[in-house]
Design a protein around this nucleic acid. Sequence first.
DNA 1: GAATATTCGGACCATCGGTCCGCTTGTCAA
DNA 2: TTGACAAGCGGACCGATGGTCCGAATATTC
Lengths: 200, 200
Amino acid sequence: MAEQRQERADAARNRRAVLRAAERLVAEHGGDHVSLDRVAAEAGVGKGTVFRRFGSRTGLLRALLEERSLALREAIVDGPPPLGPGAPARERLTAFLDGLCGIAEANAALLTAHEQACADAKYTEPSYLFWHDHIATLVAEARTGLDTDFAGFLAHALLAVFDGELVRRTASPEEPRRFTRSVTELALALLDAPAPPRIS
Amino acid sequence: MAEQRQERADAARNRRAVLRAAERLVAEHGGDHVSLDRVAAEAGVGKGTVFRRFGSRTGLLRALLEERSLALREAIVDGPPPLGPGAPARERLTAFLDGLCGIAEANAALLTAHEQACADAKYTEPSYLFWHDHIATLVAEARTGLDTDFAGFLAHALLAVFDGELVRRTASPEEPRRFTRSVTELALALLDAPAPPRIS
DNA sequence: GAATATTCGGACCATCGGTCCGCTTGTCAA
DNA sequence: TTGACAAGCGGACCGATGGTCCGAATATTC
């Protein structure tokens, strides 16, 4: 069962149309200002269709975002080093962050829209959990002896920086990858910091 | 001109009533689920009054949050060290973060509501600008030679951790100030990290 | 106590996410 | 080819919500 008797041809066509329409609207207008009515209209389908395919506004944005990050995710799971398994934690982490920053820089508006839509559920999104787990693991590996919970917190802290608006503000015309550079420096600072003094 | 002929007595009374009502509702129900209709009803005033006083949902939440952080702000500007001027940057920063974390831990739900309402304008809020400037200055002072822009980025990164939901998730029953401890460790790690290698 | 500026309050509006259901259309077996 | 049936479509509809407006009410001032 691939997924219950295949998706009908028109359904697949509409799914693509909706994704492309949403993508276009988010790119043109800011992250918000993209109501589902407009997406449906732009895609040339009814609103019901959008919901049938994606369940909710959140689902639509999530689908777009996962489409963008699928390659990175696969490369991490079973691609060649330094992204994939095998490389030292430190190299894997910077390679991963480099990839994620690239996605963020190219999709800042989409990030904003997604954050807005997710709201509270942000920390339970499968994608978020995956990124978080990956970072936390690598951090713990690179800094042996670090408290596990604190490694998790550092992972949250690193991911917290991926805010659409912050990405947009950090980027600059003459240095498009400034966000990436900043995040990388931040991550390295965390890895290279001396062991924290025992607090309590 | 205090502010144009004083505020009328009933107006002041209503302002307080609305603030207290909003506070109560946010505390009881989660950060969202606090519509302005309900706030108005709970306060025993008309909806128009809420808007007249606070301009918008965002304005109301902001007012609540600034009420909570006013003391900290004043202590920083002209209070005694280590919060106020005079102490070494490192001590000032940890003292400040300690204070801000305290506020965050006590008002996680409010934080969530405010983030939701601010959306894109987050980085232009007077409060945010104040915190950001303060942190960036202290970081630059504690790590001389650090690129100014990067100090600013680190400030954003530190503030990005103050996400209502993250605060709630980091706190734990048996260790209420776990969020504070984590943030402090994070900040110290950033201050103590060795100078980053020149990238480009 | 009257004149006046300010404020009140809730009806009203537009928008938006999400639901529903009668109609259309792709699919597949005969 | 055709017919029957499941799957999908689309847009009218709904409830909630942020925000506006203006006649009524009231604090303030002289």
